[in-house]
Design a protein around this nucleic acid. Structure first.
Length: 542
RNA sequence: GCCCCGGUAGCUCAGCUGGAUAGAGCAACAGCCUUCUAAGCUGUGGGCCACAGGUUCAAGUCCUGUCCGGGGUACCA
């Protein structure tokens, strides 16, 4: 059993026996290990309720704790009322034994076993290459999927796209214009058309593959462009190790009649009405300031309508958890969609919506305003080609999704050489190297080595850190913030590098060498697990 | 105007459900490779955690207000 869970248990018992409220007992690893391994502030929290000084309560709690000596070696009380726990040697022993025995399964709690999760991410319409901004979402989504997967969820990675709307029509018109431009014929470039150079390339390829005889309004333009761009998107994602399981197409909801059904049901609930030749959704009923258009006067629906049908469909498919990952531009739109889904009688609690802030690109110290339509952007592919998948993935995870991300293209090249991702990978590679050396010395990993020989500060720190892996992963599941995993690994690697600088694994003392080998093997296992979750490779040599 | 996110070291950012002395990388400076990989380690300097109130035994963290930056507020997605 995990020490933290054990402490939770005995503290609950102790508080109950004292007639105190045993709720929200915060047990945290101490920052300063000289104070102990874990501490709780529960005595101070309860001081008001019990009308006693925190120190007195702490002492009382300490007196009635039923300690398991195989886990806790001592308990101290320090002002202003912390209760500190020092873990026993046998517990430390069991941590390393557990890592080495369970290997990649170490730390897994299988909270999601038997549950199905859906993660929708990227979902960019095929109107142009994926940009750096999409990259952030792609990597967030993929990593969150990995976290769910780690916890035992059956995860469906989904990409939803819209190929029936206005954007795709304009795409077709843009390609058509470039087609006739290439052929030296008169053309009309749409006012809101896509201006990127890739449109011209597509037009050229159409000439090569379909000849010069296409007429204005031909469906080929749009269809070819969509197919071509989608291939590019998929290959961009592949280059950073991302593959979706399901591509959901808006069109299918028209074909299945789901869209009509949504409108009909919303109308029956009086949530839809006609005005100015358009069909409106009564979002004011959901607390919004204004109602929103559902179907334009042109007859084209806005994205809201298919989105509602799509979200109903996700629920119908029986997911226990459905994570939507959107950019900040969706901030205002998803509540309407979810409210409508709820109004249609669905339970929307499976939905968890994550909003990430934008990526700002800096070039020559100035902001680059990115627009797919204007063709002014840096693609994810360019980024990956310059820096490699590991660096790109790390870069996008290292910042919380709520932070605006500044990406300085000039600095990126310099920094890529000193990128913190190498710090992690280097720790792993160093360990692999030592393990190889150990083999030559005929030292092998033994889960029952005498780990009580690991008495030095950095060694104890490593064991403490390894013990926190499970809790870290629980926190990552709770918050769906991949960054938590990354911060943990960074700390673990840091602890290892400190240990490495000061101590040698291969020594004259065979028992000590064996114990240290077990320690670094454990670090390697957890590093590899964590890096796997982040989608970052863990090289054996660098 | 209204809604959402942010404001922490010179720069980019961490800071777990409020906890003990606020951290990392980069940048600057000074050390450490005859010994398992120096993509590393050690040390120095650098902070009114935007500002003002409030809650609490305890606030970078929670509440209110102000200021600054970003996003949204479309019959675009």
């Amino acid at each position: 059993m995990n020490l933290r869970a054990h402490l939770q248990h005995i503290l609950t018992e102790a508080l109950t026996s004292l007639g105190l409220e045993a709720k929200n007992i915060a047990i945290l690893p101490t920052k300063d290990s000289s104070l102990g391994d874990f501490s709780t502030s529960v005595a101070m929290t309860l001081a008001g309720q019990a009308k006693k000084s925190p120190l007195k309560i702490a002492e009382e709690i300490k007196a009635v704790l039923t300690l398991d000596a195989t886990m806790v070696s001592s308990v101290t009380v320090t002002p202003p009322g912390f209760i500190n726990f020092i873990q026993s040697d046998s517990y430390s022993q069991s941590v390393l034994n557990s890592v080495i025995t369970n290997r990649s399964a170490f730390g897994q709690d299988f909270q999601g076993k038997g549950k199905r999760a859906n993660v929708e991410y990227v979902s960019a319409n095929p109107t142009g290459p994926l940009t750096v901004g999409h990259g952030r979402q792609a990597i967030l989504g993929d990593t969150i999927s990995n976290i769910l997967d780690w916890h035992g969820f059956d995860v469906t990675r989904e990409y939803y796209f819209n190929d029936a709307g206005r954007q795709m029509r304009v795409l077709g018109e843009s390609v058509e214009a470039r087609y006739f431009e290439h052929l030296g014929k008169p053309f009309d470039f749409p006012e809101e058309g896509y201006q990127g150079s890739y449109i011209k390339e597509i037009a050229k390829i159409i000439i090569d593959e379909h000849g010069k005889g296409l007429h204005s309004g031909s469906i080929e333009f749009r269809e070819f462009a969509e197919k071509f761009i989608f291939e590019d998107i998929k290959s961009s994602l592949k280059s950073i190790g991302i593959k979706h399981d399901v591509f959901s197409n808006e069109k299918s909801f028209y074909e299945s009649g789901a869209i009509e059904k949504v409108v009909k049901e919303l109308r029956e609930k009086n949530l839809v009405y006609e005005k100015d030749d358009a069909t409106w959704l009564r979002t004011t009923e959901f607390g919004k300031e204004k109602d929103r258009v559902l179907i334009k006067s042109s007859g084209e629906p806005t994205y809201r309508l298919p989105d509602i049908a799509y979200h109903c469909d996700k629920l119908d498919r029986g997911f226990d958890l459905a994570v939507d990952i959107f950019g900040a531009d969706h901030m205002d739109t998803y509540p309407d969609v979810l409210s409508a889904v709820e109004a249609l009688g669905h339970d929307i609690t499976p939905f968890k919506v994550l909003i990430h802030q934008f990526v700002t690109l800096l070039k020559n110290g100035e902001k680059v305003k990115m627009s797919t339509r204007k063709g002014d952007f840096v693609t994810l592919k360019e980024l990956t080609e310059s820096f490699g998948s590991d660096v790109v993935r790390y870069f996008f995870i290292m910042r919380g999704m709520n932070s605006h991300l500044n990406f300085d293209l000039d600095l990126a090249q310099d920094q890529s050489e000193k990128n913190p991702v190498f710090y992690l990978q280097y720790a792993h590679a160093r360990i692999c190297n030592i393990i190889n050396r150990c083999k030559a010395e005929e030292l092998s990993v033994n889960p029952d080595a005498d780990f009580t020989l690991l008495m030095e500060g950095p060694e104890k720190e490593l064991i403490r850190k390894l013990d926190q892996f499970q809790h870290t992963m629980e926190a990552a599941l709770e918050s769906l913030e991949p960054q938590i995993v990354l911060n943990y690994l960074q700390d673990l690697a840091g602890n290892f590098h400190k240990f490495y600088a000061e101590y040698r694994v291969i020594t004259d003392d065979k028992n000590l060498s064996e114990a240290r080998l077990g320690l670094i093997e454990s670090v390697k296992i957890v590093l590899a697990s964590g890096m796997g979750i982040l989608g970052i490779s863990s090289p054996a040599r660098m």
